[in-house]
Write a protein that binds this DNA or RNA. Sequence first.
DNA 1: TAAAAAATCGCAATCGATTTCGTATTTAAA
DNA 2: TTTAAATACGAAATCGATTGCGATTTTTTA
Lengths: 340, 340
Amino acid sequence: MSNGISLKELAAELKLAPSTVSRALNDSYEISEATKKKVINMAEKLNYQPNPFARSLRENKSKTIAVIIPERINNFFAQVMDGIEEIAHEHGYHLLVYSTHEDVEKEKKIVSLLQNKRADAIVMSVSSQTSDVSHLEKLYQRDLPIIFFDRVCSDIPTTKFITNDYESAYEGTKHLIQQGCQKIAFLMLAKELSITKERYRGYLDALKEAGMQPEPTFSLHCCRSDEENIQLITELLKSENRPDGILSSVEKLALATYHAVKKTKLSIPDDLKIITFSNMSSAGLLSPSLSTITQPALTIGQECAKLLIKKLTKPRHNELKDQVIVIPSKLTIRESTMAR
Amino acid sequence: MSNGISLKELAAELKLAPSTVSRALNDSYEISEATKKKVINMAEKLNYQPNPFARSLRENKSKTIAVIIPERINNFFAQVMDGIEEIAHEHGYHLLVYSTHEDVEKEKKIVSLLQNKRADAIVMSVSSQTSDVSHLEKLYQRDLPIIFFDRVCSDIPTTKFITNDYESAYEGTKHLIQQGCQKIAFLMLAKELSITKERYRGYLDALKEAGMQPEPTFSLHCCRSDEENIQLITELLKSENRPDGILSSVEKLALATYHAVKKTKLSIPDDLKIITFSNMSSAGLLSPSLSTITQPALTIGQECAKLLIKKLTKPRHNELKDQVIVIPSKLTIRESTMAR
DNA sequence: TAAAAAATCGCAATCGATTTCGTATTTAAA
DNA sequence: TTTAAATACGAAATCGATTGCGATTTTTTA
């Protein structure tokens, strides 16, 4: 009673063979309408729930998608998850969610756990520490469909969804220059990250176009620890040759900058202007309000899930091509980059 | 090759029976050390990965915990998830995650999907629309271990983890009064929610103790839509008899208040002081910085997972008692409640 | 009316790992 | 030296749903 009944028990109750009941529930053409109705009614009455593991074992698919993200307390990833979930649920898929906490070792463990096909496919954004991708190649060789988004792995020949990182960074930097910044710094998590590379390129090109030299000390490599990052940024801001503009490649570094500024006598935007990649809904409520490059997170999640489910439904016709799909970000100017 | 090998194939390779190989891998006392080594080595060499569904089918457990939260873009729930995941992973459990988006209908669907034991247990916080709990009772009757946190269901006799909502709201309100507020409003999502009830009680008692009358219009019921909430709050602030203090029972309503204030000529904290329940890390960076009652989210998640896993590991000795475990919140005073 | 075709349904194998029970071999006790 | 006990392993059932194939009944066609 407490643990629902099985197909066999349901069949016994109906005085039918399990095979018949199974076919009836799956609406097979081999079963008469009368029988189907009887079966469905009894199944309803006894609250029959098919065992998902028996089914997965038999069909060799779990109706489950694994999602691996670097961190949960991040509006961008949370929104992407919402997008993935929306489409996944529409198609009866469940979501196994893992956070690497920006730790490659953890990422490797998680990936290793997924080798046994517990999930039919994987959607992921790699950790900032990920440079060696052998663990991901292993997945690919196992024929596990993978899709990357945002922080992608160009070495793995599959579909990747990203935003126009180069252009956005270029535009953001250009905006800072237009607002009067002379010495612009770039804050990054790890230089191996795909998004870092692209955004850095955009930053450099904008500088070059304006005839500005990139200062080596203005390319700041940060880490996982908020405290350390605040320290690093504070030092940069207190240094003799300090920047007057900042392009932050990720949300958390912009927030760290706000904290760092509080430890100096500087003020935003008078002494320092800042723009960041961020999906924070409260960016407009910060003091001062924060100019952002907002990524279409929900759409990215939806598109990832749509493509993956297409692939899972019709594997033959939908190979995950080695391609990069770009969805543009949106730049929102606020007080933090206002000219005096 | 692409799809790993099975136990049977591994056994064939070793010229052993599948039963022997299974026992060897599970470190059974019936198998000699020599054989164990051979088996383990070969399993390693061929990268054997046990099929989780075959195992789940046989053992009638999935090593999976389902987590149901009202929304993902919420620092509190994100942190709770991190806590649950930490402990779950330590014990080899996976996490199926679902968001109801504050929608009961969605919650019912999700709960219905979990009736088939896809997950061994459930950790959840109910949606703000949840008042009828028949769908949750069905789960309970199915012997599916459930633990509630934060937004609990007192009708379901199981363990609940909450914070000291009454005291925190009481202290928060008292703080507002001490800072000079005369007319304090209370912002809530839905009055049926457990947290709303408790926090409202604390609010009322603090008022009463100060000899203040609760204005009916100062108890503001909000909804899921940010726009509507901002509208509601704006109207309240523009009304003739407007409050000079606000206790917000959830983070999003405090942010909505900040947005609403921008549409008026009021300023925080001079004209209006506000304190809110929130786990936002950037509360200190808002303009003005936001006083908060911060819940021990990570700890809550960890404790939920610990208790659940104890129950799953030793079902006999660890029934989930009908009890409420309280972990205290922390009050952080910032500019938004400063006296002039 | 007989034969062919269609409609319905049951039997049994299968997915992969675990486990009960049984058997053969080795070791220890009598 | 014989018997009892311990050791090491295999055969087969099992978990629950699906499906190929075969069997039976009913309907259609000739």
